[in-house]
C-alpha cells in the first residue's frame, strides 16, 4: 500500500485539516491488516519521527500516525483512521440540526453552558423627568382648606 506521510497542524476535531504531506511511499502493512488502524513498516528515511499524519490513496483515508524506531533502519507507523478528514465531503453534505454553532448569533435561546454566578448585579435606576418630585422640592406643603360654599 502507498502512503503519504506528513504533518497535521489542526486539531483532531477539525473537519478539513491543514496538512502537509510528502510523496507517496510504498509501505509494508503488518498483518492483520485493518483499514482503520493499519501498522506500517517503512524505511527510516521515508518517515520522520515528527510526522503525525498520513494519507492512503489505496483506502482513500487519512490517518493519525505515531512513528517509532524499529531495528534495522526501519520505522513502525501506527495509523488510526481520521473519519472526519476521510469523509469530509460526505460530512459537508449532511443536513443536520445544529445544536450549537460558533457562528450563531447570540439570541434569546437559553445557553445552559454559561455559568451563572451566585452574586447578581443590583442596580437602581431612577425615573427621569419626575414632576412630582419637583412639586415637593424644598419641603413644599400645601394646606387644603375646604369650607362650605
Amino acid at each position: 500500500m502507498t502512503f503519504q506521510f506528513g504533518t497535521n497542524s489542526s486539531s483532531n476535531e477539525t473537519l478539513h485539516k491543514s496538512i502537509s504531506l510528502g510523496s507517496e511511499i510504498s509501505c509494508i502493512v503488518k498483518d492483520p491488516i485493518d483499514v482503520m488502524s493499519p501498522y506500517l513498516i517503512v524505511k527510516s528515511s521515508e518517515v520522520e519521527l515528527t510526522d503525525n499524519y498520513a494519507l492512503s490513496s489505496d483506502t482513500g483515508r487519512y490517518y493519525f500516525i505515531v512513528v517509532e524506531d524499529l531495528p534495522g533502519g526501519r520505522r513502525g507507523v501506527q495509523c488510526t483512521v481520521d473519519p472526519l478528514m476521510s469523509f469530509a465531503s460526505g460530512i459537508d453534505a449532511l443536513n443536520v440540526n445544529v445544536e450549537r454553532y460558533e457562528g450563531a448569533t447570540e439570541s434569546d435561546i437559553y445557553d445552559s453552558g454559561v455559568c451563572l454566578t451566585a452574586r447578581n448585579e443590583v442596580v437602581i435606576e431612577s425615573f427621569s423627568g419626575c414632576e412630582f418630585a419637583k412639586a415637593s422640592d424644598n419641603n413644599a406643603r400645601t394646606y387644603i382648606l375646604t369650607v362650605a360654599n
Binding site: I91, L94, N97, E99, R100, Y101, E102, A104, S107, I109
Partner: peptide, 20 residues
C-alpha cells in the same frame, strides 16, 4: 463550545465549531 443555534444547516455551509 459554540452558541445555541437550533437551526438546520448543511455542515459544509458552516465554519467553526458546530455540534449536531
Amino acid at each position: 463550545q459554540g452558541v445555541p443555534c437550533v437551526q438546520t444547516k448543511t455542515i459544509g455551509s458552516c465554519t467553526g465549531f458546530i455540534q449536531c
